[in-house]
Design a protein around this nucleic acid. Structure first.
Lengths: 270, 270
DNA sequence: GCGTATTTGTACGTATGTATG
DNA sequence: TCATACATACGTACAAATACG
């Protein structure tokens, strides 16, 4: 009974899609329907969807199929599963981590280099200076000052060096978080996220790090100063230089043929 | 037997992740292991992974769990399932569509506007001019000419207007496909992909379209001419103007509060 | 704090469609 | 054409997590 329904559905969709696209999986179709259902209902993050049992009757599919559809949406970062009473799939906005993951996968297979990343990063970070100016409040400026303070303390062991490098990256995401353009923020987070993961392993070239770190702190301080007086041009110029230097240093540390084995390390944010 | 092993594993990971992160699902853990296995083995697109049955014994998990793990990797665009003999999960590179999907989801929930998209698009497309110059071969120039030709034919019905708009977008992806920096190409494809989906529905403001389309064709032709003589500066200037005009027109057509309900339409590339 | 109910997570068995050779 | 290997789908059962009385 159910099998005939299934068979018919598949044959039908196969006919429609002809030769071009393979017969879509039932779970993917259901996932798409749930997706558009989320849109048409205008669901916001936090809202909950019907539980598995209801979906089974609604779509006339087995639990495994429904679960697979929900899994697809979960991996895409659209929903999150919650156990217990009043549980079920709940809408979760953003999907920043999923974007980072997807782009990281791309970088792995396409053999993206440090040069490639910095060509893009430089462009976007410079644009950020123009877009963010005038949108940073006092509290954020204080946080930026603290971050710079943290970066200027000389690091001696590998662990503190890593924390310092993370703080240096965080400086950029803090600024980006102030920009009204959320898409610009996402791009910064994606690129910085890739770099954080790429440089997460302990690095060679310890002796380089100290000097570079001091130079970074100077640039960060100067950029903040320029942003304080809302001087976008200067901030942009400094950022461009800052990116060029970072690019040079990272290239010295990691060489040309990097980002391959480093890109795919799972975020594990479950 | 398997249940005790399972229980211990879960307890172990729960202890490690403490309170910060929720107890990860077993399928996600396995997905991560497969992911890093792909890296360490240095698998390329087209290579095949062990079939489900082998994974069941290798990980000591049930079929459902393995399938869920593979589903995760499939949605992330890392593998593709193949039925039949010599089938099983095979590695598939790229994951361009997955990146587009993820960013689209983000745009939906974060209420990204036309202004936001064009601020970023303008920056990246202008950068593209500098990066792509000297990397376009004759055959591609011919394709670009053909594309411009196609765009300059006046469109009368809604269907041909849509095809024309798609051709106009394709012009940009053709140029982008020549850039050595694959990450830059990805970004262009993501942004253009979002715009294509956003403008896929039939639009109001038909009367605007004709004039705009002619202007587009002129700019496209001028940009190609500049790229032919490897004049990056002129190409960049033209592209910036072209973007400003496109931004103005799209804003007239769709207004300020767009991209919400349009962003989440599933690509359905299965 | 403690059971209890609800809902997801995991597991096993089986049937069927589908592509390869 | 037929057999074979594999994913896809269904059904059932139990374990684990969480909210609520």
């Amino acid at each position: 009974m159910t099998s005939t329904q299934d068979g018919e559905g598949r044959k039908n969709s196969r006919r429609l899609s002809h030769l071009l696209t393979r017969t879509p999986k039932r779970s993917s179709v259901i996932a798409g329907e749930i997706r558009s259902w989320i849109i048409t209902e205008g669901l916001e993050p936090g809202d909950s969807l019907p539980v598995e049992k209801e979906m089974i009757t609604a779509f006339g599919a087995s639990r495994a199929t429904i679960r697979e559809a929900l899994k697809e949406l979960e991996v895409q970062g659209l929903v999150r599963m919650k156990t217990g009473p009043n549980g079920g799939p709940i809408v979760t906005g953003s999907s920043v981590l999923e974007s980072i993951q997807a782009v990281q996968n791309f970088c792995y297979f396409e053999k993206v280099t440090i040069d490639d990343i910095y060509e893009l990063r430089s462009t976007i970070e410079v644009q950020l200076m123009y877009s963010v100016v005038g949108h940073i409040d006092e509290e954020t400026f204080d946080r930026l000052d603290a971050q710079i303070e943290l970066s200027s303390i000389p690091a001696h062991d590998e662990r503190s060096r890593r924390r310092q490098r993370e703080a240096e990256f965080e400086f950029h995401t803090i600024i980006a978080s102030c920009v009204p353009n959320r898409l610009l923020l996402l791009m910064i987070e994606v690129i910085v996220g890739i770099l954080v993961n790429a440089t997460a392993r302990e690095s060679a070239a310890h002796e380089l790090h100290g000097e570079w770190s001091r130079e970074n702190s100077r640039y960060h301080a100067d950029i903040v100063a320029a942003l304080r007086r809302e001087d976008a041009e200067t901030a942009a110029r400094l950022m461009r230089e800052h990116m060029e230097i970072a690019h040079r240093h990272l290239k010295l540390m990691y060489g040309d043929l990097s980002l391959e084995a480093i890109a795919l390390t799972a975020p594990e944010r479950n």
